[in-house]
Write a protein that binds this DNA or RNA. Structure first.
Lengths: 154, 154
DNA sequence: ACTGAAACCATCGCGGT
DNA sequence: ACCGCGATGGTTTCAGT
């Protein structure tokens, strides 16, 4: 019958492996194989294929910013003034407190997430951007959905 | 002199370990030890402490959504109608296409990120929310800053 | 925090389904 | 073609210093 879900398909085994890795990316192949219902060599080969296919783009570590001195997180929408788009993009990239940023359609051009030690620090960062863009900042109060996998099945 | 950077402090060794793990969370302890300039047992003990201190909150896998059939990503700002806040929060949590969501200050109450297979699917998801909230959707065109670590030093 | 030894795990090739 | 099995080599872990 070929590949279960078309060329992009993940079968149940792949799904279990990705879910196990999302819970803990450092589990051994042995544990991964158990979670998937496979032998270690088979799990290793599957894992290699998932990386090769580009489905797994990285194994990363999640840091809790508040434990390393960043008690505040903000989401900032940024609308560069005419002619300032590229400069603003560079400022964002070079400001390490921006831990992610997307370029989007709509009134806003960029939506970024940043961590700061204090409101004063936030003010300092935004001041630099405000010379070249309109900004709109929202402080994060809670996270109802922590980063999670997209639906994996059909 | 005690702990280098106060109770929240990360010394250079911790920093090198976190950076190495951010690049690839599945490297062996041996490689991690090399990156940090330590023996394997020492690196293992440091790693254990970083988890115990809550600095490392998880080891996770990054999936490329486009490779599993989600070519589109959107950021949605959501402002529930009076009395609908909790219902809206539940809808978001129970919609698996929302892969993250924060509760924020300001006009918007929630800012979420979602993956979809098509604009039609996006429309279907937003229709459910629009009964109970105002929404404002931005499609992601590019990602100038991919998720990265906060600054680790002072 | 390092060294060395023992236990454990990953990897490779082979055979079976 | 894919999975499981078994041997080899490497890695993790634990003792002691």
């Amino acid at each position: 019958m070929g590949i279960p879900n078309g060329p992009l398909g993940l079968d149940e085994i792949d799904q279990r492996m990705l879910e196990a890795l999302a819970r803990n990316a450092r589990i051994s192949l042995k544990e991964l194989a158990e979670a998937a219902g496979l032998s270690s060599p088979s799990a290793a080969e599957r894992l290699r294929r998932l990386e090769e296919r580009g489905i797994i783009s990285a194994f990363t570590v999640d840091i809790a910013p508040e434990t390393i001195g960043y008690p505040l997180q903000a989401i900032v929408r940024i609308r560069p003034l005419p002619g300032q788009l590229h400069v603003v993009e560079r400022i964002i990239q070079e400001t390490p407190e921006f831990i992610e940023c997307d370029k989007v359609t709509g009134d806003d051009c960029f939506i970024g997430r940043l961590v700061v030690r204090s409101m004063g620090e936030l003010d300092g960062i935004l001041d630099k951007i405000t010379e070249r863009a309109e900004t709109n900042t929202s402080m994060i109060k809670a996270t109802p959905v922590k980063r999670r996998l997209p639906p994996l099945s059909r």
